[in-house]
Nucleic acid binder design. Sequence first.
DNA 1: CTGAAAGCGCTTACAG
DNA 2: CTGAAAGCGCTTACAG
Lengths: 333, 333
Amino acid sequence: MSKATIYDVAGAARVSLATVSRAINNPEKVKPETRERVLRVIEELGYKPNAFAKGLASRKSTTVAVLVPDMSRASMAEMMNGIADIARVYKYSILLYILDSEDTPEEDILKEIVAAQVDGILYLNDEITPKQFDFLRTIKNSYQIPIVLTNTIYPDSDEIPSVSIDYEKAGYEMTKQLIEEGRKNIYMVSTVRKYMVNDLKETGYLRAIEEASLTPKIMRTSGRISINTEHFNEYFRDHKVDGIIAVRDSIAVSFMNVARANGVHIPEAISVAGFQNTKYAQLARPKLSCVDVPIYDIGAVGMRLLTKLMNEEVLEESRVMLDHSLILRETTR
Amino acid sequence: MSKATIYDVAGAARVSLATVSRAINNPEKVKPETRERVLRVIEELGYKPNAFAKGLASRKSTTVAVLVPDMSRASMAEMMNGIADIARVYKYSILLYILDSEDTPEEDILKEIVAAQVDGILYLNDEITPKQFDFLRTIKNSYQIPIVLTNTIYPDSDEIPSVSIDYEKAGYEMTKQLIEEGRKNIYMVSTVRKYMVNDLKETGYLRAIEEASLTPKIMRTSGRISINTEHFNEYFRDHKVDGIIAVRDSIAVSFMNVARANGVHIPEAISVAGFQNTKYAQLARPKLSCVDVPIYDIGAVGMRLLTKLMNEEVLEESRVMLDHSLILRETTR
DNA sequence: CTGAAAGCGCTTACAG
DNA sequence: CTGAAAGCGCTTACAG
């Protein structure tokens, strides 16, 4: 039961270890009979090449690093599913690096990744700061490690390929939807921290609002429910609101709760929409209208793109935008 | 910027590569002056040992495999955070293996893990079937790889250490709580599939129900919202219900939605409770009462336990139960 | 305390 | 098509 080595296989198949290696990695270079004999022995012995020896000798790891700045988001898990499924198809292993949201010692991570000799990197988050982007660019340029941004886009630069949906367009469309419902005082509820993707949603929102000659109103909240509650309460006292587009489903639901507590009916008085189509949206009452983001697919396509890059194939496009759709349920009319 | 090797360091520090290796791994075995000189050079060159060479030579990978049968659960992400934080402290890397829920070719995964030479394995899920348990036992015994079960317990066997809360007790306590509220027709809403942890919750429920001489009523649902809805509707037609304990928060919320649609008031007519204290529970209206599971801690303690095992330390206890608590919000009275 | 050398299990030109 | 041999970058007894 202890692991067989390539020598064991070579001995049992009466060939040299070089032939065993070839039978595995370049089957076409070895005579069919020999190959089959070797493969049979491999099967019998349950042989599997030692990943370290292989990595050391070949300088390739068939491993990708997945950098996750923050695992706490619900969508991360689903994206990981997409990544893992494709990784399995292409025989890549996944090394997971969770970056602390605040004090990320990026130098250390960099060293770790380099030492681990990963063949590629997937950066998966809707937030990416200029500093983080520079960090990724350094890795890419200094060590020639291909990188794909997953579910985010870095503006004004095609240096690092990305996979996401067209968040600007999605923001535009959802805003347009509320405008067509006759809403005049539409707020976008965005986040305090600088999230690239939320910026795009805002841009889309602003475009639609301007086209309709309405007044743009952007409200920024923290992600924390307790703080939001107070924040929203204020708005009900001081402002006129008849439409809300939140950058996340959970924020939209949080808003609805406050609205209800203030005796406001949804969607009669206010239309509400979110982003992502999470379980929160389905579980909420009334059921939340939102932008559906194909998060599994984003992960899967991102990983697929990375395999191409690692294979040194040429990409047709460096910014892949998957299709999204508006799911209109009960919080819009 | 291309990676320095141990030879570069040795050359620059005017020592042999053996000394460099010792300065890193067994600092006490090298004279302070020499050590400092070496360490300074390492710093200057930005040297980081090649993980493959190190793994190959030492037969240790400082890598742990995290086996995740299903990434889609919200709690998984939070548990991963706990694991990753502790892994970082002890300098372990994380290799992520997501098992397909259905057709897991366990043999393949086994081979991969063995080939990857991981030092330890974390199995993280609330479900573990006898088959999966046997699989883990095989790995443990045949390859001497330490394993820790995270957020699950395998009954009647201490062979594999585990970290979780006392789900039986939690189930008991929550049931007791509803009984003390005067509820007589308390249902436990559990899952169709065989989840070990849910079995424990049921056991606790049954114990409390029996003690109070009530009739136990276990309803099994799938995890899917649409199916649940129909299922719950039936219950309202045909059964008397005044208490619901769902094995997951999301199921509890789903139930509440159906209750409301049937004109039933919560908590006046029915007390409802869930498990986990997820964001669903906080976002729901009325706010859901539930058992709080310290999921981050479970991950962290699980990883910590694994480091001890990998270090061949003796464990004081092989079943670690962390504290839980009942959070009584608005769905109980 | 330090160095020379073997060895970890593979891949890959280089011959044949 | 196949084999002998060097080499990947480390660790670790073994001497000294």
